[in-house]
C-alpha cells in the first residue's frame, strides 16, 4: 500500500479510537440475550416459579432412578443414535457422489437435498402420516402384496419415529458431509487411483479419514437435533413413544409439574451440551492437525 500505512489499531470508520462506540453497538443485543434468554433459561432450569432448586434436584434424582423416566431417556438416546447412524450412512454417499460429480445435474441434486431444510417440519412429517397411518399407503401395500392379512400397526412405533427423524435431519447431514468431502482435494483421489488403489480403497484410505472431522460434526448436529426434536416424535410417536421433548411438553402444559419439567429440561440440556462439547473438541483437534 502506497498511500496509507496500515494502522496497528483498528481504523474502523464508526469506532475510530472510540471503544465506547463498540460497546454501544453491543448493548441492545446484550440486553436481549441476557434478559430475554440467559436469565429466564437459567431460572427455569434451576428454580421455576414456586419451586426451589432442591425440589428440582430431588425430582432429577427420582427421574434418574425411576424405570419409566429412565425408559424415556433411554428411548431418546437409543432412537437418537439409530437416526444419527442412518443419516450418516445415507448422507455420506450422497455427499461423495455430489462433491465429486462433474455433471451439471449435481447442482440440482444438491439443491433438492437442501430444499427440505426450508420446509416446515409439520409439512414434512405429515407425509409419513399419509404413508404409515391407518388405511395408509404402506399398510395397503403390505396387505395388497399378501404379506399380511391385516395391516400392521406402523404409526406410533419406534420405526415411524426413526423414519420421520431421518427424513428431518438427512438434509442437514448431507450439507455437513458435502462441505467435509468437498474440502478434500480431489487430486488426492486421482493420486490414489493412479497408484493402483481401487475406488473403495481410495474412499476408505483417503476420503474417509480426511473428511472425518466434518462427518463427526454432522453426526453431533443430527444427534443433538434428534434428542430435542418435538414435532416429529409428537406426530409419529404419540404417547406410546414418549421422548424427552414430548415428555417435557407434557410436564409444562398438560400436567403442569414444573419441578419435573425443569428436571427433564436439565437432562435434555446437559445431553446437548455434552454432544456439542464433543463436536467442538473434534473441531479443535482438526485445527491442530491442519
Amino acid at each position: 500500500m502506497i498511500f496509507v500505512a496500515r494502522p496497528k489499531e483498528s481504523n474502523y470508520p464508526l469506532m475510530n479510537n472510540r471503544p465506547r462506540a463498540g460497546a454501544l453497538l453491543l448493548l441492545p443485543g446484550l440486553l436481549l440475550i441476557v434478559f430475554g434468554f440467559a436469565v429466564p433459561s437459567a431460572v427455569m432450569l434451576f428454580s421455576p416459579p414456586g419451586v426451589t432448586p432442591s425440589d428440582v434436584f430431588v425430582r432429577l434424582g427420582e427421574m434418574l432412578s425411576d424405570p419409566y423416566d429412565l425408559g424415556i431417556i433411554g428411548r431418546t438416546l437409543g432412537l437418537g443414535l439409530v437416526v444419527t447412524a442412518l443419516c450418516i450412512v445415507l448422507a455420506f454417499p450422497i455427499a461423495c457422489l455430489l462433491a465429486r460429480s462433474t455433471s451439471r445435474w449435481a447442482g440440482i441434486w444438491l439443491a433438492l437435498a437442501v430444499f427440505p431444510l426450508l420446509l416446515s417440519n409439520v409439512v414434512r412429517t405429515f407425509g409419513w402420516l399419509v404413508i404409515l397411518g391407518s388405511n395408509g399407503f404402506a399398510g395397503r401395500l403390505i396387505t395388497g402384496l399378501g404379506f399380511a392379512d391385516e395391516a400392521p400397526q406402523l404409526l406410533y412405533t419406534p420405526l415411524a419415529v426413526v423414519l420421520g427423524l431421518v427424513q428431518l435431519f438427512l438434509p442437514l447431514a448431507v450439507v455437513a458431509c458435502y462441505s467435509a468431502v468437498a474440502q478434500v482435494d480431489a487430486g488426492l483421489d486421482d493420486a490414489a487411483r493412479g497408484l493402483g488403489a481401487s475406488r473403495l480403497r481410495t474412499l476408505w484410505s483417503v476420503v474417509v479419514p480426511l473428511s472425518l472431522p466434518g462427518v463427526v460434526v454432522a453426526a453431533t448436529l443430527v444427534f443433538a437435533g434428534s434428542i430435542t426434536a418435538y414435532t416429529t416424535p409428537y406426530l409419529l410417536g404419540g404417547s406410546s413413544q414418549r421422548m424427552l421433548a414430548t415428555q417435557l411438553f407434557s410436564y409444562s402444559s398438560v400436567t403442569v409439574n414444573w419441578a419435573a419439567a425443569s428436571a427433564t429440561a436439565l437432562v435434555m440440556t446437559v445431553l446437548v451440551f455434552l454432544v456439542s462439547g464433543l463436536s467442538s473438541a473434534v473441531a479443535r483437534a482438526k485445527g491442530r492437525v491442519q
Binding site: M44, A261, M268
Partner: peptide, 30 residues
Amino acid sequence: GHIPGRSLLEGLFLSPLVIPELVIGLALYQ
C-alpha cells in the same frame, strides 16, 4: 471493534442455538 473477550461474547450470542427451543419457550412462558 476492539472488544475484549470477543470469542466469549460471540459464544454468548450463538448460545440460543445450543439450548433446546422447548427450554427457551418454557422459560419465557414462566
